[in-house]
Design a protein around this nucleic acid. Structure first.
Lengths: 220, 220
DNA sequence: GTATAAAACAAACGAACGTTTGTATTATTT
DNA sequence: AAATAATACAAACGTTCGTTTGTTTTATAC
């Protein structure tokens, strides 16, 4: 009769194979069907483990979701930390950063979808550390983009960046169904570079138009 | 013993008060808690009607979701149709349009959140007409933005636009919790105008950089 | 080799789920 | 006034939910 293991993290590369299988199956299913619509039995079946194994490793279904979202934020924070460092000009860093975020989304689409589509999930546990992470991210942007962030709030830049980078992957199922197969629109486009260029051009345009305009500046 | 009323639309302003109450409660709850996490009993309680009333008017829980999403797409299509019409230059129309979309999101946030966060919801019924609507929207963009759309696929512009316009409202709960209350970042910013400017500047920058670049043009 | 802990499992728990049935009540029509 | 349709409701349907319990198997430590 083992004690509760709910506190152990379950990120990939840690713990026994079963634990990772549960994690991987959860990421896949939560992204495709949503957290609430995914049952524990389906999840354990997909992972090839016994039903009780899920709660044995993650304490509860909600605990599993929490681990995934925490994992996502840790990834994103690492991406931002890496790409916002250095002495380059703010717009260079911004371009590099948003491209990196978009690339991360393209390789970890499921995790991103979970973190994004479960945003309304206003469970106290999750809401709390999500806000905390957001504050750290904001601070990082604030200090790295001093010039830009002085005129456009990072609370605008941040979500805008994420929304822009994520939308294509969020819409992918719809796109694939709506467009004729083999459409040129879905291939041959370096999306990360494209939206990075778009975003930086857009921000620069805003700054040029009026740093003291009706949408006046303000660090949060 | 009445027949099934599942086919009747339930958009606001139609049918008896109870039906609208169900619709309104559903929009509110589905947006805040998600479709799958919202129970029929909670929904009927919130709407102030009997449990069986929901299925009486909408056939099933899924039917209710379908009506809401259909309603959303109809709204969006109306916004696009209105703002993409006329003989103005493509970038003028684009600016006007994205601002209008963002304004719609700010006044109908719940409907937008449902349509966006239930995107993975790959039920055949819903997936089908969602793809159909997306095709109509693509066609509208294609024919209205000839110049621009010739170099940047509308299948990129569309989702990017929506993602950019929606993100702020999607992140709003997190923002409100993460930022100190009374922060200037959440007020005094004309978000629709801001992102419209950003987006058009970004697109123009992309067009100027290289209409025949490595991200070569292509109508879908 | 025996003791201890970790991992995996089958079975069952009460609760909540979406839906259906049958019956009242209220409106509309003839 | 009688007949028909629309609306509203209580009660129950069978199913699935997330979780817990107790036991068995496998690994680690002494």
């Amino acid at each position: 009769m083992p004690e509760n293991k709910a506190d152990s993290r379950g990120a990939p590369g840690e713990g026994p194979a079963s634990k990772q299988a549960v994690y991987n199956a959860a990421v896949r299913l939560f992204a495709r069907k949503g957290f609430a619509a995914t049952g524990m039995r389906e999840l354990s079946r997909e992972a090839g483990v016994n039903l009780a194994t899920v709660n044995y490793f993650y304490g509860s279904k909600k605990g599993l979701l929490k681990v995934i979202i925490e994992d996502y934020f840790q990834d994103i924070l690492a991406v931002l930390t890496e790409n916002l460092a250095g002495d380059d000009a703010p717009d260079v860093k911004l371009r590099r950063n948003i491209a990196a975020v978009a690339r991360y989304f393209s390789t970890h689409t499921d995790k991103m979808i979970i973190a994004l589509t479960e945003l309304p999930h206003d469970d106290p546990d999750i809401t709390e550390f999500r806000a905390e992470r957001f504050r750290r991210i904001s601070g990082l942007l604030q200090s790295s983009l001093g010039d830009t962030a002085a005129h456009i709030p990072v609370s605008v830049i941040g979500p805008a960046m994420v929304g822009l980078a994520a939308s294509r992957f969020l819409f992918m199922p719809v796109l694939q169904k709506a467009l004729p197969p083999g459409s040129r629109a879905l291939a041959g486009v370096d999306y990360p570079e494209m939206i990075a260029e778009l975003f930086v051009n857009g921000i620069n345009g805003l700054l040029a138009a009026g740093p003291g305009g009706k949408n006046g500046g303000g660090n949060d």
